[in-house]
């Protein structure tokens, strides 16, 4: 469902091909001896778009990409040149990545809802840093889905567990 959601977003809104490269389980902090490695190891600034879903299934999807790709994706999303984008400031990039997360998570959540797990989405958040990781407790389902967009890495990090 995640792969379909990411592919649909890039196909419909960006017009860029996206390649799925495989997935691996994300480890909770109880399963690691030392600090966990960054999800997207990079010396460049990494931006994460985050949207959660709450209901009979709870979870969050974090979408990781480097700043350079974020600019390219935003430019295609909004039909803006790099110069126009630069004049708008970083806010428009953050807003676009928030909307990207909203659309990807929306597609995923709608399928989950149609399977009988009613949930609602949260408003998007953005995280922008270098060399960081987001940890999750053990006992929840966590999977990292790796993609390539124009040879740059793009990672969808899904964490979820059934609601009460």
């Amino acid at each position: 469902m995640i792969i379909e959601a990411v592919t649909k977003y890039f196909d419909m809104m960006i017009g860029m091909p996206v390649q799925y490269e495989g997935c691996k389980p994300g480890l909770g902090y109880d399963e690691l001896e030392g600090p966990p490695p960054p999800v997207l190891p990079s010396r460049k600034t990494v931006i994460v778009g985050m949207v959660g879903f709450v209901g009979t299934m709870n979870g969050i999807i974090n979408l990781y990409l480097e700043e350079d790709l974020a600019k390219k994706v935003t430019g295609s999303f909004l039909g803006m040149t790099p110069e126009e984008l630069a004049s708008e400031g970083p806010e428009v990039i953050h807003d676009s990545l928030g909307e990207m997360a909203n659309m990807v998570v929306g597609t995923f959540k709608n399928t989950v809802s149609d399977k009988g797990f009613q949930c609602r989405m949260t408003v998007p958040s953005i995280l922008r840093r270098t060399n960081f990781t987001i940890e999750t407790p053990s006992g929840v389902f966590r999977m990292l889905y790796m993609f390539k967009v124009m040879n740059d890495p793009f990672i969808a990090d899904l964490t979820m567990k059934p609601g009460d």
Partner: peptide
């Protein structure tokens, strides 16, 4: 015009 499209919604 929304990402919310579960059948019930």
């Amino acid at each position: 015009l929304t990402a919310e499209a579960g059948r019930e919604m």
